[in-house]
Design a protein around this nucleic acid. Sequence first.
DNA 1: TCTTATAACTCTTATATAAGACTTGAGGAG
DNA 2: CTCCTCAAGTCTTATATAAGAGTTATAAGA
Lengths: 245, 245
Amino acid sequence: MNDPFHRPEKQPLYAAVRDAVLERIGSGLLAPGDMLPSEFALADEFQVSQGTVRKALDDLAARNLVVRRQGKGTFVAAHTPERALFHFFHIVADDGARELPTKSRVLSCRRRRPDREEAAALHLARADRVVEIRRIREMDGKAAITETVCVPAQWFPDLDKRAIEEVPNELYQMYEERYGITVHRASEKLRAVSASSENADQLGIKPGSPLLEISRVAETLDGRPVELRRSRCLTDGRHYQSVIV
Amino acid sequence: MNDPFHRPEKQPLYAAVRDAVLERIGSGLLAPGDMLPSEFALADEFQVSQGTVRKALDDLAARNLVVRRQGKGTFVAAHTPERALFHFFHIVADDGARELPTKSRVLSCRRRRPDREEAAALHLARADRVVEIRRIREMDGKAAITETVCVPAQWFPDLDKRAIEEVPNELYQMYEERYGITVHRASEKLRAVSASSENADQLGIKPGSPLLEISRVAETLDGRPVELRRSRCLTDGRHYQSVIV
DNA sequence: TCTTATAACTCTTATATAAGACTTGAGGAG
DNA sequence: CTCCTCAAGTCTTATATAAGAGTTATAAGA
């Protein structure tokens, strides 16, 4: 058959179409926010019926990779500020209100070698470099979270040189817009820990107070880890919300 | 039209079929593990095409309500021990190994009035009754979790009278098999807290040590809360794993 | 002439149906 | 006991029709 796209063996047609589109998204050929070709256009291109393309796109939509709107078109999912926060920020006030961290104070932003944990999480060699951002995020007007963000320096060339004021509160949108890196999924490990004296200073609490430690590894579409983020949160009148479906 | 099933207004056909099947599952007419009628049988019954039924069932499968197996049939999802644990138990060893709580020691099992928090979470009046089970779960041979489970007494008639030894380690399968109540989704709130002296005794740690508190509300298919479970976990060499997709 | 309302058209996704292919398990022939 | 066949499922693909959302052209009115 004269396939303009790759079809290994016994894979269904719609899966091949899905993967072909996925490939274009992953490679950046289709950027977040872009409109995909119409179902008929894709059907024509891949020499399949519109229903087959439809199934492929439905599949992608089910994974939140594209957004479909009747009459308008199909679009590559983008990191809107809301989506980023609602999706990746799980700290919620006890009354259920979603108070978001409005302000964040950057303590430092520098380039250095990764420690063992960072190298493992980000699949780096010890000789590679990471950019580390340390900051304190406020919620409800008070310091609530200390955060250390680590990303591979090679993918974020000049991040360490940017002025501290330039680092926005929400990083993922910047990753996408400025470096073309879309964070798609993340895995978080939660622990209860005692506040160090440094934590205590930063958050205005007593050393030894219990803090919720969140260690997040964020990944791109193709599964490459792009960020290790270690946070310590004051869960006083707040909690981490997790929904099991 | 001569609809044997309810179709409010401008709802698509497949959605009506989906809801009709959902209704049968929710009402217990189709119990977990049961095989559904075939696509053609349902199509005949509802006077629609097989493709429409297929779309309805695909929808249910996407929500993990049914399991489809080519050549065999479509089945109502059941709480196998594995599914229950993998799905609802998120404590994992730091090396990634999934060590599950093999043993649990039941401390008490009694019937009483709900406190304010329980009444709110379970949608009960203060005059109603709950059954409370308190237990300690072991991981890797050591006490690791203290747990207080609260369920409405009306739905679990004789649960408090069952011998303590009869309470299995995994409760959800028992809920389903013995009381016909299927836990379908849950929402968990996580906090870092200090161990009380009672916690300290139970877990063999010092009072004031940080513990991960998990407060879970479990719901049935139709959204009714059936269980409030408050756990306090020792996150020493372990963590709570959360995946954000 | 400029503005505005609206009808017609086009492009898009959504829904419904049908037909053939594949998978599984059970039962009978050898 | 083994292999084959077949029936009953679901899975894949294709096609037709419906419905939503812009765009453009036209005509009426100020």
